[in-house]
Design a protein around this nucleic acid. Sequence first.
DNA 1: GTAGTCAAGTTCAATTTGGAACTTAGTTAT
DNA 2: ATAACTAAGTTCCAAATTGAACTTGACTAC
Lengths: 196, 196
Amino acid sequence: MSAASGASEQKIGTSESAQDLDDLPDMLEAKLWENPCPFTFRINYLALLYNTPLYSWIQDTYGLKRHEYVVIYSLALANGGSARDISRTSGFPKNTLSRAVKRLELMGLLEERSKAPGGGRRQALRLSEKGWKLFNETVPVFESYEERMLTPLSKGERQILFELMSKVVVGAEDWADDLPQAGAKGSTRNTKGETQ
Amino acid sequence: MSAASGASEQKIGTSESAQDLDDLPDMLEAKLWENPCPFTFRINYLALLYNTPLYSWIQDTYGLKRHEYVVIYSLALANGGSARDISRTSGFPKNTLSRAVKRLELMGLLEERSKAPGGGRRQALRLSEKGWKLFNETVPVFESYEERMLTPLSKGERQILFELMSKVVVGAEDWADDLPQAGAKGSTRNTKGETQ
DNA sequence: GTAGTCAAGTTCAATTTGGAACTTAGTTAT
DNA sequence: ATAACTAAGTTCCAAATTGAACTTGACTAC
């Protein structure tokens, strides 16, 4: 993704794609250093930089869309989970996931859905042999990209970052689900935005 | 957003929406604590939790879609920026922004586009009086939400977090734009994912 | 100046998306 | 057991999204 390259005066000699080398908008500088919400900008920006190339690689290599791969990834971490669970933890609406699951089944990446795990009429989804294979092939790429993203940090710094972010996420249990108006109705509110 | 509530045993007595109180999937636990990419999961998850309610509030209150508000926000930080700049820093494709700009003009939130600022045939976009008003009304909400998100951290911890994330973002200049296959062509590659 | 090049912005068309309504299957109450 | 309720998953369709092609205007070289 082009939104990435150098900020202003640093690195001039590095031979590269040429066109989008140094002409990075001042706007980026402004968003980084004069943003009233510097934290969330960084979060969003990093998510952008991380997700874009990876999912476009997944698409090109395996013909899977983002939400389809997300199903695979989710089940790899919590096999037997339901569509609902994936929706809750990823932010994709349930009908999108319904379609994704159907397609993955068709492709033989999931086993036939078994019946209820926890409550209600939930369906337990499981990866097939083939699904696991795909996951095992792809995780390393995701891992190495995360690794790469963290390159500028020392071991200790990574640990601290991890702890701080964990704190924030855990704390989120309190504030999420009641802000401005959102969440008025109790139903599953998924407007936009996704997670792996 | 429902993906938010309590993890497992904490907070039982807090009277709430009832239905999505404690039934948060184990999947979330797995994604948080057994994820091969713990850092990027946190990033994506927080982005989800932060963006969803805010943009849905913007939508309800001002009738602006996310990418439309992003234009406002971007120009507020870098007035006179071009559509290209916004695309580069936000991840939205340029045609989407083209439409957004058109609509914002129609709504009187932008001034008439002036000619070239930097190079080529770039158009300088500027907020109108009305646009500024809207921005000034809304930023506080965004700010307070960020504040709220950071509640669990002390002043010092926030500072550290800010520094670490800045390091990562600045370092991104090197790795972004060359991973798996992505970026093969030199052109503006915007597949999916957005930033404020 | 005129031709050629380049990229910013726009338009078009095909696909994708997700809200709303619906179906289906558990669970609870009577 | 039957009825009423609840929520998971699915279908439908109108609306939104975006890749690709195109247009436009500015710089460059001759």
